[in-house]
Design a protein around this nucleic acid. Structure first.
Lengths: 198, 198
DNA sequence: TTATAAATGACCGACCATCAGTCATTAAAA
DNA sequence: TTTTAATGACTGATGGTCGGTCATTTATAA
């Protein structure tokens, strides 16, 4: 027998060692050779751990999003107001702390649109469902406590998805400048309609 | 002088002659040689009319969207109900007639995300503003005629952008299956809150 | 216990095929 | 003869492969 490396861990290490150059250059402006050099390994070794160049971005985003989910979970449980909880879900699309992940997520979405891949879609679906479950629970709780009207539930999916639309529009146009303000004002306006009047 | 070709027209012709293969294969699975062969011209000629491969997609989408805008304009003016007008804006993201344009638009967004280009962003911004103006006008008209409450105006941008979010989510996840239903039910729910009660 | 051989997984970079984009040349019209 | 259009052979770059090397561990036997 010979050396046995922790393939999963090494894959993570390679991916993470490249996250800065991916963020700075974008996948299209990076060569496998550069990536391998940055990771301090041979070009061939890349393909012992990744299916292709896209797969590296996927791994980075995968790791970073899973880390972020944990942070988000604690942040949500530490937030009292329903409205603030809702806003917290959208914060990914504008907060300074998430700037790098957001940049890499952008690359990831670009890949997912032009080269849809079973695994990527599965991961995205899981993320969507996870977030959405929390989101739904938050809204339902607010309904049950009499804070907002029952009809609010119908806005769950739309409200949840709208932030993604703002994000894409902010990247693809100059029409959306301040994502935070747009999200905040939309949520505020909706809450005014949905709050139970005393 | 020698033969003078209408550069603008020829660019259009080349672009449109390739729209089917772009829709079927996607930009990543097409080579310039294939494109040139499909257009019935030499490889080098492509570069007399386009800056690069991305630029061809841009031209196709550009032409098709501008055509669609005209159709949309007449469709809107032929639609009476405010709610139907609003829904009309979202129809791009699910209607059968727009399936091909939608597929090419997806490619275009993918390009715009990973290789942002001045011209593309400018075009997208113009489209956004054009649609949004109509959209805003529709809402304002409904407010002035006493159909919906004044606060409705605050939902303009969010409502407008939410359909794009649905679209992206439907492509990147398996969590959104029926875009039309999602858009319809969100718009319906919002209208219930916003309609002036008699 | 130590020396040697065998086995195996990790790692690598030269190599290959492909392809976007260029440019020297040709063709055709005026 | 000049100008414009068109072209496809060519080039440089790059994603991905593959045969081979190296390092470590295990087996064996002296």
């Amino acid at each position: 027998m010979a050396i046995i490396v922790d393939k999963v861990q090494k894959k993570r290490d390679i991916a993470l060692s490249c996250r800065d150059i991916f963020f700075e250059n974008g996948i299209r402006n990076l060569t496998i050779s550069q990536i391998a050099k940055t990771a301090g390994i041979g070009k061939g070794t890349i393909y012992d751990y990744f299916r292709n160049k896209d797969d590296i971005v996927f791994e980075i985003v995968n790791i970073m999003i899973q880390e972020r989910n944990k942070t988000l979970e604690t942040l949500i449980s530490g937030t009292k107001s329903t409205k603030d909880k809702i806003k917290l879900f959208g914060s990914f699309f504008y907060s300074d702390e998430d700037a790098q992940l957001r940049g890499l997520y952008k690359e990831f979405i670009s890949i997912a649109l032009s080269s849809p891949d079973e695994e990527m879609i599965k991961f995205q679906t899981e993320c969507f469902n996870l977030y959405y479950l929390w989101f739904e629970k938050t809204i339902e709780h607010a309904i049950n406590s009499g804070e907002i009207i029952a009809e609010s539930k119908q806005f769950c999916k739309g409200l949840f998805v709208f932030a993604e639309g703002m994000f894409i529009s902010s990247l693809a146009t100059n029409a959306i400048v301040n994502v935070k303000d747009e999200i905040d004002s939309f949520v505020d306006a909706l809450f005014k309609l949905v709050e139970v009047k005393k």
